[in-house]
């Protein structure tokens, strides 16, 4: 008598045991590779910014930030500088290069609200020299009672 072989039905399953390992690996990968900007020599905290009402969002991808401290120190590209005479052209030189790289450059000011206007005026003069004319003064919204 002929032997009848019964076809075995195999279940089609995708092994899911390792999905958790993959997810944790992803999590660890992003935790390890995320780099935050930390090389700031100094920082003007949000609490020190001026207050304003008509605030608009500024697209990050075309911005370059200039920090101006109360003691009139200027920080651009993590390099502290001062403008004491017309020969101090570090700001305009740097911005000419940046403007060449990105013609839509927006220069953001993170200035301490107690800073004297003179230093801002000097920096803006250098921006004009570098033809970087779009500026944004970063401010914190006025808290309404």
């Amino acid at each position: 008598m002929a032997k009848l072989s019964v076809k075995k039905r195999r279940d089609a399953t995708i092994p899911q045991a390792s999905t958790s390992d993959i997810a944790f690996l992803l999590l660890l990968f992003f935790m390890v590779t995320t780099v935050f900007v930390q090389e700031k020599k100094f920082w003007v905290e949000r609490e020190r910014w001026p207050f304003a009402e008509s605030i608009e969002r500024i697209p990050r991808n075309h911005t370059s930030t200039i920090y101006v401290m109360r003691d009139e120190t200027i920080l651009l590209d993590d390099i502290p500088t001062r403008i004491e005479s017309s020969e101090d052209v570090f700001v305009s030189q740097t911005l000419i290069r940046k403007k060449a790289e990105d013609p839509e450059l927006i220069v953001c000011f993170r200035t301490d609200r107690e800073t004297k206007y003179g230093v801002m005026s000097d920096v803006m003069r250098q921006l004009q020299d570098a033809n970087a004319l779009v500026v944004a003064f970063e401010a914190q919204p006025i808290l309404k009672k």
């Binding site: 969002r57 500024i58 697209p59 000011f109 004319l133 779009v134 944004a136």
Partner: peptide, 25 residues
């Protein structure tokens, strides 16, 4: 869930301010 939690709660530095265009030199 952990990944989604960290993705949704991570807040990046947002730029907000008053925009102006300076006159040409």
């Amino acid at each position: 869930l952990l990944i989604i939690f960290f993705m949704s709660t991570t807040k990046f530095d947002v730029k907000e301010g008053i925009k102006l265009v300076l006159p040409k030199a």
